[in-house]
Design a binder for these strands. Sequence first.
DNA 1: CAAAATTGTAACAAGATTGTAACACCGACA
DNA 2: TGTCGGTGTTACAATCTTGTTACAATTTTG
Lengths: 223, 223
Amino acid sequence: METKRILIVDDEPDLCDIVAFNLRAAGMEADVVHSGEAALAQDLGRYHLALLDVMLPGINGFELARRLRNDESTRSLPVIFLTARDSEDDTLHGFELGADDYVAKPFSVKQLLARVRAVLARTTPIAERLSHGGLTIDMRRKQASIDGNEVSLTRTEFDLLRLFMAHPGQVFSRQQLLEQVWPSDVIVTERTVDVNVTRLRKKLGTYGDCLATRQGFGYFFKA
Amino acid sequence: METKRILIVDDEPDLCDIVAFNLRAAGMEADVVHSGEAALAQDLGRYHLALLDVMLPGINGFELARRLRNDESTRSLPVIFLTARDSEDDTLHGFELGADDYVAKPFSVKQLLARVRAVLARTTPIAERLSHGGLTIDMRRKQASIDGNEVSLTRTEFDLLRLFMAHPGQVFSRQQLLEQVWPSDVIVTERTVDVNVTRLRKKLGTYGDCLATRQGFGYFFKA
DNA sequence: CAAAATTGTAACAAGATTGTAACACCGACA
DNA sequence: TGTCGGTGTTACAATCTTGTTACAATTTTG
């Protein structure tokens, strides 16, 4: 497995040191910057994950995340927010900005490491591309296509499809799908899965049939 | 899936109630005790997981875990620590004691549930497939097949067959089948079992004979 | 052997599950 | 500010599953 590069953006030097030390001990590369401005000065495209403190002087974590989302080269950079505040508002705000997870300070290193691993596992493509017949998804570009024609999928839809295509035949319960596709702290109904599957089916046209229902169990990708 | 039994050891009744409620809503059995001493008075061997508050009056969570590790019958009981303190020391201490995970209060119910599920999945050995002759069931695909041909089973039928195939020769009373296959909150007649066995037999064709009746006792899987 | 108990099974109705459209909310962006 | 895209929720319809019941078949019991 390629060594993972993590960028830590936090203005508390001590905390940064601890986190960086532990990430390195876990076999990852960790770089530290202490402000949003400094983060933007980095070559962000080379990282696999960013840990963003929400409360930064100047450009804060949310603002930084927003900018990442608006730049083609960093649009798909996974983000975990770190914050001392843990009000529901902040959490929601973070997820709307496309956070992959959210860790409230103070956190245990073990906990953070677990989240980091989970996000990396979720976002690391098994392959650059997955195909089945004329249906292809490109992890790097976050782009699906059918017979060469691009299909515009939303983030949720793409993540869903990727999970299914990465494990063809395996039946996922709605609960599993919520855990694997939705960020860890959002609470949504199981029926939400159904609706997203339906939307995905519609967009996939002919290949919509590949998303099959196993009544009483869940959904799976059918060849 | 066999119903999981969880023991919650925490001296805050409100928190216990919330956690127990949610575990039950997730289909598990949850018992609550409010002290380490009370926990030790339980038949701990029958649980699949213990949630231990670290800060308990009297025997605290760490001490309790230590005792669990020293007793043959509870040595392999998975443990998740709950704690308001989240100093690194505590965390490490917890893991040294063989904690399977560690959740800092305050935690979101969703988070805790995810951890519980993860630990249970990790500690529950499950066969991916079970076969007998040309009859095979694939847990991953939730799919039964006979001589390579897929047989469509409903959820109940599948769960029933899995239980039988996992314990060939063992006679299950109707009551046992109800307990193990049906969700704990539904109340149905014993005759319901008969009907489902009949349906299963019919779908299994030749292999229907494998579901044998022991009159006066119940049903079993015959080789 | 006859009566009683037990099990097999078809048929039906109730309940559960799923598909889907419509709606509401919210942030992004012009 | 208004519109738009994304997404979760809800409601209703369509479908599938499942429990119950009644009666037949079989086995056990006296």
